[in-house]
C-alpha cells in the first residue's frame, strides 16, 4: 500500500469538499490498494456519515442511504416485501462477512474481477490504459460476451446493481460544487470503448449519497445466479427479472443481467420481444435471441452464450408460471 492521507468527513458536503477517494466498507478498495492497483493520494472516510437509513417516500418508493450495508438492505422487510429481486441479489453476493461491511454506494462502484486487472505483472487497459488487454487471447472464462470492445472484456461483478437495474433505480449524488444529481442507473455506467478505465459517469469528487427505488413493481420477481460454487463466487450469468402477466399476455417485463457485460446489462429489445406476447417458450426464445444477437465469445467464455440462453428461458418460465 502506498502512503496516503486519511481524513474522516463530518458531512456529505465536507466529504465532497475534501477532494479525495471515498472509503466506506472498503471491501474492494483496500484489496486493490494493497496490490497498488488503486493508489489514492488521500482517502476520505465517509463511513460515519448519516447515510445508513432506508426511508419510505411519499410516492411509495424507497430511498436507500449510500452507507446502508448490504446485509441490512437484504434483510429490510420493505425490501423483502416490495423488491424481493433486490434482497435475493444481495444475498447471492459475496459472503456474510463482506455483506456486513459492504455499502450500497460502494457496491455500485465495484471494480471488475478480471484476473488480469488484478495482476500488475500483466497488461490491462483498465488498470494501465494503452498497455493492451491480456484477457483477449488469454483466459477469459469469467469475462464478458456483451458490450465488450477490443480494449476490454471485463465484467461488472455486482449482483445488487443487476437487481437495481431491473428495478430502474436512480442514483443520487452530491457534486463537489454542491450540486445534486439524479442519475438513472441505465445512464450511470459506461461501455469500455477505448477508455475502459472510465466505468461510470461520476465526476471527480462526486459522492453517491442515496439510491432511490421507484414504487414496488407489479408482477413476479426473481434473481437467479449461476456460479461455479455455491457461495463466494461471482456470477457466470445472473438474471434479475420482473414480469407481470395480464389477461394471458405479458404486460410488463424488466430483465437485467450480470456476468455478461461491463455493466449490469439491460436491453430494451429483450423486453420488447416479450411484452404483449402470451408467455411461451417461443416468446422466451425470441427474447434470448434478442439478448444474444451481438454476443461475442472470446474462447473460454463461449459457453456463456448457451448458458445465458438456457438461464433466461428457465427464468422466464418461472416468472410467468409456464412449465416446460
Amino acid at each position: 500500500m502506498k502512503t496516503f492521507a486519511y481524513s474522516r468527513a463530518e458531512s456529505p458536503e465536507a466529504a465532497v469538499a475534501a477532494g479525495g477517494r471515498f472509503i466506506a466498507g472498503g471491501t474492494n478498495l483496500l484489496d486493490l490498494m494493497k496490490l497498488q492497483i488503486e493508489t489514492p493520494e488521500s482517502l476520505v472516510d465517509i463511513s460515519r456519515l448519516d447515510l445508513a437509513k432506508i426511508e419510505e417516500r411519499e410516492d411509495g418508493g424507497l430511498t436507500i442511504g449510500a452507507l446502508v450495508p448490504n446485509s441490512d438492505l437484504a434483510a429490510d422487510p420493505r425490501v423483502i416485501a416490495g423488491y424481493p429481486v433486490l434482497s435475493r441479489a444481495l444475498l447471492a453476493g459475496a459472503s456474510g462477512q463482506l455483506r456486513n461491511k459492504a455499502s450500497t454506494g460502494g457496491n455500485l462502484l465495484q471494480r471488475t474481477r478480471c484476473y488480469y486487472f488484478y495482476d500488475k505483472a500483466t497488461a490491462c487497459n483498465k488498470r494501465e490504459p494503452g498497455t493492451g488487454c491480456s484477457a483477449i487471447g488469454g483466459v477469459n472464462r469469467i469475462l464478458a460476451i456483451l458490450g465488450t470492445s477490443e480494449h476490454c472484456i471485463a465484467t461488472h461483478p455486482s449482483d445488487m446493481a443487476v437487481a437495481m437495474r431491473a428495478l430502474d433505480a436512480t442514483i443520487v449524488t452530491l457534486k463537489s460544487d454542491g450540486d445534486r444529481r439524479r442519475i438513472a442507473i441505465g445512464e450511470f455506467y459506461r461501455l469500455p470503448g477505448d477508455t475502459p478505465q472510465i466505468e461510470n459517469v461520476l465526476e471527480a469528487g462526486e459522492l453517491i449519497t442515496h439510491v432511490e427505488l421507484p414504487t414496488p413493481p407489479k408482477g413476479e420477481q426473481l434473481y437467479r445466479k449461476v456460479r461455479d460454487r455455491a457461495s463466494y463466487a461471482f456470477a457466470l450469468v445472473s438474471v434479475a427479472g420482473i414480469v407481470s402477466v395480464e389477461d394471458g399476455k405479458i404486460a410488463s417485463a424488466a430483465l437485467a443481467f450480470g456476468g455478461l457485460g461491463p455493466m449490469p446489462w439491460r436491453d430494451p429489445a429483450v423486453e420488447a420481444a416479450l411484452i404483449g406476447q402470451a408467455p411461451s417458450d417461443a416468446a422466451f426464445a425470441a427474447a434470448a435471441d434478442a439478448l444474444l444477437k451481438d454476443a461475442k465469445g472470446y474462447g473460454t467464455n463461449d459457453f456463456k452464450i448457451p448458458l445465458t440462453r438456457r438461464t433466461l428461458i428457465a427464468s422466464l418460465r418461472e416468472l410467468t408460471g409456464v412449465s416446460a
Binding site: 459472503s95 474481477r113 484476473y115 488480469y116 488484478y118 495482476d119 505483472a121 500483466t122 491480456s134 487471447g137 488469454g138 483466459v139 469469467i142 461455479d228 460454487r229 455455491a230 457461495s231 463466494y232 463466487a233 461471482f234
Partner: peptide, 24 residues
C-alpha cells in the same frame, strides 16, 4: 489455470481458485 502464453498463473487468489466453501 496457467496462461499458455507465458506460463503465468491466472487465478492466483482464493476468490478465483475455487476451493469448496461451506455451502458446497
Amino acid at each position: 489455470i496457467h496462461d499458455p502464453r507465458n506460463g503465468k498463473l491466472v487465478n492466483r487468489d482464493l476468490a478465483e481458485y475455487h476451493l469448496p466453501v461451506n455451502a458446497d
